[in-house]
Amino acid sequence: MKIVRKNQTEEHELELERDQGDQITARVDGSSVVLTIQRLSDGSFLVSDGERRYRGFVCRSESGVEVAIGPYLFSFTLEQAREVRSRSTQVARPEIVAPMPGRVAKVMVAEGDRVRKGQPVLVLEAMKMELVLSAEVPGTVTRLRVTVGTQIEAGAVLVEIKPDLSTQQAETEAS
């Protein structure tokens, strides 16, 4: 199976070769990993790779699984799940989606505006930082769902953009 780490840039090839309950053998990116796993009373586990032992924890996340190994936290998605999601959003409605929760600090476009690919559309402010969100495709702003000051959750659709048909087709064909 192919697993993608959350930042979507790192792919890993995995195969579970043997599963004997408390001992597993997996191929991770072409080399073998043998783990001895022991469940602990608080729901976490103790895992050893023969060299180091870690306390860890596994849970489901919105899009896959999250694995804590000591103080390191990893988030994984199955490649197939990611493809299904990205296809359905990219072709249907190229929209500006909030990557993090926060508050809209600035809106740089109005409904009806034409935007270039990469053009800054709005500024999001969360806790103590600002993030500029840009159009991913060229097109026309069809709907502005937020104004300055709107509090938003991660994943919320902020701006709807109708992509230029020619560009969209070109990108669909290329992918």
Partner: peptide, 11 residues
């Protein structure tokens, strides 16, 4: 690597 093997098991 340990996390990946754990994730494979979970999947």
């Amino acid at each position: 690597r340990v996390a990946l093997a754990m994730a494979a098991t979970a999947f």
